[in-house]
């Protein structure tokens, strides 16, 4: 049998009532945190000695079939040094705008993970530097496909879906700029910098 993660007691003494409840499911400790303190909690888990959750494995969300039940945003944390996992959840009331503060400033890997949650569930992450759709094309107009109220085949007729898909211009969005190569240039190794500087795309100009 697995036991509860020691982080829970530490979190409770540190944040008190902001830690709403916790449970163990499939050997995984799950902690529900209030939305207001979520960013503080995650920052604390990342940086305080003894926690060191330095790797954000995943950000995802769960929409339950019961429309009364809140939508949950899930943060799966791992401490690579301590080999420990922790799952943090925050419940968002579906009657209010689905908003939660970004954790991009804590883990850069949150960039695309949060974009995916935005794309599929419509949760907006305030403070995210580039919150756009990532799986569906950017002009996708049917809504948020992983919401439970989204019909499996989408809202539009197949002809309309096909027409909108054909009207998208993939080249407008997928380029070196899309991969932020230009911004990351200074951090690349020397030989790669040289290769890119010679490159035919000439993005440095």
């Amino acid at each position: 049998m697995s036991s509860i993660s020691p982080s829970v007691a530490a979190l409770r003494s540190q944040f008190g009532a902001a830690i709403e409840r916790h449970l163990i499911s499939s050997a995984q400790t799950i902690v529900y945190v209030s939305r207001d303190r979520l960013h503080d909690v995650l920052a604390w888990l990342k940086d305080s000695p003894g926690q060191d959750f330095n790797y954000l494995t995943d950000v995802t969300a769960v929409d339950y079939r019961d429309p009364e039940r809140p939508l949950e945003v899930v943060y799966q944390l791992r401490s690579l040094g301590r080999r420990a996992d922790l799952r943090i959840k925050v419940a968002l009331d579906k009657r209010a705008p689905l908003e939660v503060r970004t954790v991009y400033d804590l883990w850069r890997g949150a960039d695309w993970l949060e974009r995916e949650v935005f794309d599929m569930f419509g949760v907006s992450f305030t403070g995210h530097p580039d919150l756009r759709r990532i799986l569906m094309w950017e002009t996708y107009a049917e809504g948020y496909p992983l919401r439970k109220d989204f019909p499996l085949r989408g809202h539009f007729s197949r002809a309309e879906q096909t027409r909108q898909a054909l009207a998208a211009n993939p080249e407008a969005h997928y380029s070196l700029e899309e991969l932020s190569m230009a911004e990351a240039y200074g951090e690349l190794p020397q030989d790669m910098q040289e290769r890119l500087a010679r490159g035919e795309r000439g993005f440095l100009k």
């Binding site: 085949r153 809202h155 539009f156 007729s157 197949r158 002809a159 309309e160 096909t162 027409r163 054909l166 009207a167």
Partner: peptide
């Protein structure tokens, strides 16, 4: 915006078996 008339696209995309109807144009 299509190379077939929209109703043809709907028809070709129609689910089969016991699936429910797809929205039509």
């Amino acid at each position: 915006g299509l190379f077939l008339p929209p109703h043809r696209v709907d028809e070709l995309s129609e689910p089969f078996g016991n699936s429910v109807q797809q929205t039509r144009s």
